[in-house]
Simulated assay, not measured.
Amino acid sequence: MPPVFQHTVKAPALFAGVGVHTGAYTRVAVRPSAPDTGIVFVRTDVADRDNRVPVSPEAVCKTQLGTVIGNADGVTVSTIEHLMAALVMSGIDNAVVELDGPEMPIMDGSSLPFLRILDRAGRREQQAPRRYLEILETVEVVDGDKRAALKPADSFEVAFEIRFDSAAIGVQAVDLAMDERAFREELADCRTFGFLHEVEALRAMGLARGGSMENAVVIDGGRVLNPEGLRRPDEFVRHKALDAIGDLFVLGLPLLGRFEGVLAGHGLNNALVRAVAARPDAWRIRTLVQDLAEAV
Rank of each mutant, 00 (worst) to 15 (best):
A278Y: 01
A204R: 15
D243M: 00
V199N: 05
D45F: 04
F249T: 09
A47T: 15
P129Q: 10
E228Q: 15
V9E: 04
A11R: 15
D119Q: 13
G70Y: 01
V273C: 03
R120W: 00
A72G: 12
D93Q: 05
G261A: 07
A16Q: 12
G23S: 03
T287F: 01
L176D: 04
A295K: 14
H197P: 08
V97L: 00
L268W: 02
E157D: 14
T44S: 15
Q126Y: 14
K10R: 14
G221W: 10
R232P: 02
L253T: 06
A173I: 00
D36K: 04
V142S: 12
L253V: 05
I245Y: 03
T22E: 00
A264Q: 10
V141I: 01
V139E: 11
H82M: 02
V4P: 04
L176F: 13
V53A: 13
V60H: 09
F15H: 13
F41K: 04
P57L: 02
A173C: 11
D100R: 04
V141G: 08
N215W: 02
A121E: 03
T192P: 11
G17A: 00
T63K: 09
A85L: 02
K240M: 01
G211P: 06
I285F: 13
I106E: 11
I117S: 08
G23A: 09
P35Y: 03
D189L: 07
K151E: 15
E81G: 08
V289N: 06
A208R: 09
L14Q: 14
N71K: 00
P32K: 10
L288K: 03
L268Y: 08
L83W: 10
E260L: 14
R286V: 14
K146W: 09
L115R: 07
A148T: 07
R27H: 13
F195E: 02
V88H: 02
R43L: 08
D93W: 01
L176G: 12
V217I: 10
L248C: 05
L202I: 01
A244G: 10
R191W: 05
T63A: 06
R181C: 13
A182S: 06
R209V: 01
Y25G: 15
A59P: 14
V199E: 07
P54D: 10
S166R: 05
I169R: 10
D50P: 08
G66S: 07
I135V: 06
V77I: 01
A149N: 10
D93P: 11
E140N: 06
T79C: 13
R43S: 12
G101K: 09
L115S: 07
V224W: 02
D93E: 15
G144W: 02
V296Y: 12
V224T: 05
D108W: 11
R123M: 09
A277C: 02
Q126R: 11
W283H: 15
M89R: 05
P113W: 01
V30C: 06
I69H: 03
F156D: 05
A173G: 13
K151A: 15
S56D: 08
L65C: 06
E200D: 14
G74Y: 05
H197M: 06
D108R: 14
A47G: 13
M107N: 07
S111T: 07
Y132P: 07
A278E: 12
L87V: 01
R181E: 14
F193Y: 04
N51M: 00
H21E: 12
T44G: 04
G206I: 06
